[in-house]
């Protein structure tokens, strides 16, 4: 027997025409299975339609919104930074990040002064073992590298210097990079990390990190973002900068740079 499923659906939905209703009634009169299934379908439909609407969690699209704002800055930098999520005007970017920039400059000075005395092997990764994990090509990072590694200031500097040297990788740190790095497909964590880093770093002007690492810095959970920059006007990048941003506060905790 051929069962008129299409018409049975219309019957269950209450949208069947009188002409089709006669056809369906004739079929149901001789088909106990379809009678039973129509009864089941009505129960299921009513049960689904009485499900309560779920409460929508907050932050469902934070990663996408961060990416949207970055895109907007690239397309129309004079528009995007002045609009908040609720359409409310916000303070200009330079004002919001002025404090962070001053802190970063101060930290950079501290790093330069302290460099000869850093690099304690017992704290974690040292300058000798820091792994840069790839070529220093100016290609934006597409994934978050998660490392079970504790960087110190010297190790961060080594990360920058490795881009400066052009060889892109040191052998000493390769073991943790291969064992503890999550593939680039981890886009959810990437978006969150990028938003955190971009919120902390002043005057990015749309540039994107060539590498984004989730690790620790002096025992504190942190993101390490490597940026390449240059004079502009089509000239190649001439500086590698590593920003270290605390994961919990999204505040800059260290930065260092190296000439390419």
């Amino acid at each position: 027997m051929n069962h008129p499923v299409d018409l049975l659906v219309d019957l269950v939905d209450g949208s069947i025409s009188s002409e089709d209703r006669a056809v369906v009634d004739a079929h149901l009169a001789s088909c106990a299975t379809c009678r039973q299934e129509v009864a089941l379908a009505i129960v299921a439909r009513d049960a689904l339609r009485s499900l309560p609407a779920p409460d929508v969690p907050s932050g469902l699209a934070d990663a996408a919104l961060a990416e949207a704002e970055r895109h907007a800055r690239e397309v129309a930098p004079e528009v995007a930074p002045l609009r908040g999520r609720g359409g409310r005007a916000e303070a200009p970017a330079w004002y919001r990040w002025a404090g962070a920039a001053a802190a970063a400059a101060a930290l950079l000075l501290v790093v330069v002064v302290a460099l000869p005395d850093v690099g304690d092997d017992e704290r974690g990764v040292t300058a000798e073992s820091a792994d840069v994990g790839g070529e220093a090509a100016p290609v934006a990072a597409s994934g978050l590298e998660v490392q079970d590694v504790d960087y110190d200031t010297a190790a961060v500097q080594a990360l920058a210097l490795a881009y400066g040297s052009g060889d892109g990788r040191t052998a000493a740190g390769a073991e943790y990079a291969t064992d503890a790095t999550i593939p680039a497909a981890d886009t959810g964590g990437f978006g969150e990390a990028l938003a955190c880093v971009e919120g902390a770093i002043p005057d990015l002007e749309g540039s994107q990190p060539v590498r984004l690492i989730e690790a620790r810095f002096d025992g504190t959970p942190a993101y390490l973002a490597v940026y390449l920059s240059g004079p502009g006007a089509g000239e190649p990048a001439d500086t590698a900068t590593v920003w270290v941003v605390a994961r919990d506060t999204c505040a800059i905790v260290s930065t260092t740079r190296a000439s390419l």
Binding site: L60, A64, V75
Partner: peptide
């Protein structure tokens, strides 16, 4: 509007 650089337009879509 979003494609023209207005991030708030995407926020509204979300």
């Amino acid at each position: 509007r979003y494609l023209a650089g207005d991030a708030a337009a995407f926020t509204t879509l979300v």
